[in-house]
Amino acid sequence: MIWTLVLCFTITDISEEGLSAKEGLLLWAQCKTAPYKEVDVQDFSISWSDGLALCALIHCHRPKLLDYDKLDKAYECSVMTYIASYFHAFSTMDQAETVSRRVEKFAELMQSVWMSRNDYKR
Rank of each mutant, 00 (worst) to 15 (best):
Lys70Gln: 14
Leu109Ile: 04
Lys64Val: 04
Arg122Ile: 05
Trp28Tyr: 11
Asp69His: 10
Arg117Glu: 15
Leu54Gln: 03
Leu65Thr: 07
Ser20Asp: 03
Met110Phe: 07
Ser78Thr: 14
Glu16Ala: 11
Gly24Cys: 01
Asp94Tyr: 10
His88Cys: 08
Trp28Met: 09
Asp43Gln: 04
Ser49Ile: 06
Thr4Pro: 00
Val41Gln: 04
Val79Lys: 06
Lys121Ala: 08
Leu109Phe: 08
Val113Thr: 08
Ala29Pro: 00
Pro35Arg: 03
Asp119Trp: 12
Val99Leu: 15
Met115Gln: 11
Ile14Tyr: 10
Ser20Leu: 07
Tyr120Ile: 07
Tyr120Gln: 04
Thr81Asn: 13
Val39Arg: 00
Leu26Val: 01
Lys73Cys: 05
Leu66Arg: 01
Ile83Met: 14
Ile58Cys: 05
Lys22Asn: 07
Gln42Glu: 06
Val103Trp: 11
Phe90Met: 14
Arg122Cys: 07
Gly18Leu: 02
Ser85Gln: 14
Asp67Tyr: 04
Gly24Asp: 02
Trp114Leu: 10
Asp13Pro: 07
Met115Ile: 08
Tyr86Gly: 09
Lys121Trp: 05
His61Tyr: 05
Gln95His: 12
Cys31Gln: 15
Ala96His: 10
Gln42Pro: 00
Tyr82Asp: 04
Arg117His: 13
Tyr75Gly: 03
Ala89Asp: 10
Tyr68Thr: 03
Lys37Cys: 07
Asp43His: 05
Glu76Asn: 08
Thr92Met: 12
Gly51Ala: 02
Glu23Phe: 09
Thr10Pro: 00
Phe90Glu: 08
Leu5Met: 13
Val79Cys: 07
Ile46Tyr: 06
Val41His: 03
Thr98Trp: 10
Ala107Gln: 15
Ser85Thr: 05
Leu25Gln: 02
Arg102Leu: 14
His88Asn: 13
Asp67His: 09
Val39Gly: 03
Ser100Thr: 08
Ala107His: 11
Asp67Trp: 09
Ala21Lys: 03
Val113Lys: 11
Ala89Ser: 12
Lys22Trp: 10
Met80Lys: 13
Phe9Lys: 12
Glu23Asn: 12
Thr98Asn: 10
Val6Pro: 00
Trp3His: 12
Leu52Arg: 01
Tyr68Arg: 03
Ser47Val: 01
Glu76Phe: 07
Val39Tyr: 03
Trp3Tyr: 10
Arg101Phe: 09
Tyr82Met: 05
Gly24Val: 02
Thr33Trp: 00
Asp40Val: 04
Asp94Arg: 08
Lys64Ala: 06
Pro63Arg: 03
Thr4Tyr: 06
Thr98Cys: 10
Ile83Val: 15
Leu26Ala: 01
Leu25Trp: 02
Pro35Tyr: 02
Glu76Trp: 05
Leu26Trp: 02
Asp50Tyr: 01
Ser100Met: 13
Glu76Leu: 12
Arg117Gly: 06
Ile11Lys: 04
Ala74Val: 06
Ser78Met: 07
Ala56Tyr: 02
Ser85Trp: 14
Glu108Phe: 08
Ala56Lys: 00
Trp28Gly: 02
Ala34Gln: 15
Asp50Ala: 01
Tyr68Asn: 04
Asp43Arg: 08
Ala29Leu: 11
His88Trp: 14
Ser15Glu: 15
Leu26Lys: 02
Phe90Ile: 15
Ser100Gln: 13
Leu19Phe: 09
Val39Ile: 06
Gln30Lys: 08
Ser116Val: 03
Ser20Trp: 05
Leu66Ser: 03
Ile2Thr: 07
Lys32Leu: 14
Lys121Asp: 06
